[in-house]
């Protein structure tokens, strides 16, 4: 069985388990929608101000709500010592990591996709003018977030305070990815195309993903064996 099929088997298992319990997606989605709602009551910005703030607002919501999904990535293996069976199985640690990251990525992406229309309604903003470039940014930034989150989910899986430790470890490392995502999202929600000036942020996002994905795939075996 090749690497990709093993990863897809792990991803399918995680998604099936999540669909049956809906633990992570329900918590994350509810949290994201509540923050969006509270922000909409708390401030009364003009449309231009809101467009300028949109990237920051959305990505802070995604980062906070996403941590609830990422926390579950390896924590779902704790009951019944399931992680032992996965580590003992003849699959590469990198395939296990990739499968788990894929499942978390899909859950995060779904949560984000639901948030965008809600954001548009609460803040009365049309955000679809640059729909496909916006989706590209969403995919790239979400993958960066997922890779860092999945790595630290593996690292903190046996910690008692992992729900607190994960955000503390993930957010500082995510700063370059978050900055790029905020800048690009604001530009695209404002309906402006990706001009050469902001393309540097896109390159940063791609570079961030390549570096951290490679590092995670190489290091995950050592992380899992402790």
């Amino acid at each position: 069985m090749n690497f990709l099929r093993q990863s897809l088997t792990i991803a399918a298992k995680d998604l099936r388990a999540e669909l049956r319990t809906k633990e992570a997606i329900q918590a994350s989605l509810s949290f994201a929608l509540v923050i969006l709602l509270l922000f909409s009551f708390s401030f009364d910005p003009s449309e231009d101000e809101m467009r300028a703030l949109s990237g920051g607002l959305l990505w802070i919501v995604f980062a906070f709500a996403g941590a609830l999904i990422l926390n579950r990535t390896f924590a779902r293996e704790i009951p019944n010592d399931c992680l032992d069976a996965l580590v003992a199985a003849p699959i590469a640690g990198a395939a296990l990591f990739l499968g788990k990251a894929l499942a978390s990525f899909i859950l995060l992406f779904v949560m984000e996709l639901v948030c965008f229309p809600v954001f548009g309604i609460f803040y009365n903003i049309g955000w679809t003018a640059q729909f496909w470039p916006l989706m590209l940014v969403l995919v790239l930034a979400t993958w960066g977030f997922t890779v860092i989150g999945t790595t630290f989910s593996a690292l903190t899986v046996n910690m008692r305070l992992r729900e607190i430790m994960l955000p503390l470890l993930v957010y500082p490392l995510m700063i370059p990815c978050l900055l790029a995502a905020i800048r690009l999202t604001s530009q695209l929600v404002a309906g402006q195309p990706l001009d050469p000036e902001v393309m540097v942020w896109m390159r940063l996002l791609v570079g961030f993903n390549i570096i951290f994905t490679s590092l995670a795939l190489v290091l995950v075996e050592s992380v899992l064996l402790g």
Binding site: Q6, R16, R20, N80, C82, L86, A88, A89
Partner: peptide, 26 residues
Amino acid sequence: VLGHGISIYDELSAIENLRLFGRLYG
């Protein structure tokens, strides 16, 4: 390996659990 924990997933059915490990073991 049969360890202290049963290493099976509560959210999956019996056949899904075994099918999963069957695939992982190729």
